[in-house]
Amino acid sequence: MKIDGSYTMNGPREQVYETLSDPQALRGCLPGCERFEEIGEGRWETTLKAGVAGIRGEFTGTVTLADQKPPESYTLSVEGNFKGGFVKGVGNISLEENGDKTTVKYSGDGQVSGPLASVGQRLMTPGVKMVANQFFRCLEGKVGSQAPASAERGA
């Protein structure tokens, strides 16, 4: 399954990059994040309860941030299990200046197996896009609000 899209958010590229690579912000915006524990440099173990409308799945696995090139790009990989099967994917996130805004482009390739893959395929790409939009919309709310290394108000 290939997926790509973009989301334009308010704020200069440096600030947007900072938010998009800040574990606290990611934790607050990953949909239904119940657990987010660092298990290595740029690697977290997580439990998410994500879904669209009444279709909800619990995902358990790892999220890895790599190839960080601030403020331009990084890669984000996920790997793990959920009730409907197994998922593994790598996405490239790149940030482009767009006036006083920043356009975040994402493109990824993933494999999903299990019943969701065989029957839910029709709904998977739009479902992932919908969740991605929620994720970026949430992150947008946090841009510029971070004072790195100091406490901030919760999500």
Partner: peptide
């Protein structure tokens, strides 16, 4: 709670346990 009408969208989801109201 979830409404069940004809079940022809909901029951397939329930069978796959993609939804478990």
């Amino acid at each position: 709670a979830k409404v069940l009408a004809g079940g022809h969208s909901l029951i397939p989801l329930l069978k796959l346990r993609l939804a478990s109201p």
